[in-house]
Design a protein around this nucleic acid. Structure first.
Length: 119
DNA sequence: CCTATGACAGACA
DNA sequence: GTGTCTGCCATAG
């Protein structure tokens, strides 16, 4: 429950016009390996708690939802925030990935790799 | 305790 | 680019 609340907090902290990856959200919430829990939280609470769920994308810089299964809506919501999303759902990290002022290197991927290599 | 659930991530073919 | 496989893990039941 604790983790879940933190995940929601992180997602709510993503500013308009920016996106974060599932793993990035998990890392900022305290567990870089819990990307799947972020998915679970979104399923359970995105509507209920009105989370800016559309600002969460996958590590490949793409919308994970399938066409006809939310893809179009997420793309539309992002475009409304002037986030450029290609027709196939790709978003440029260099330009739109959220980089929290505090957390240096929110590059969840690099962070995960670094931490994994330590063990 | 055990199993299922996930919009994942990364490595690979 | 696609698809498959493995590892991952906090919750719910």
């Amino acid at each position: 429950m604790e983790f879940e609340e933190r995940v929601k907090g992180v997602i709510r902290a993503i500013p308009r016009g920016k996106v974060a990856t599932y793993a990035q959200v998990a890392a900022l919430a305290g567990n870089y390996r819990a990307a799947r829990q972020v998915v679970r939280v979104l399923h359970a609470s995105s509507a209920k708690d009105r989370l800016p769920w559309h600002r969460v994308i996958n590590s490949r810089g793409r919308i994970s939802l399938r066409r006809g299964g939310g893809f179009e809506e997420q793309r539309r919501r992002l475009l409304e925030e002037s986030v450029r999303v290609s027709g196939s759902g790709r978003i440029a990290f260099e330009e739109f990935q959220w980089e929290p002022a505090n957390a240096r290197r929110p590059q969840a991927t690099a962070a995960a790799r670094f931490l994994r290599d330590l063990r």
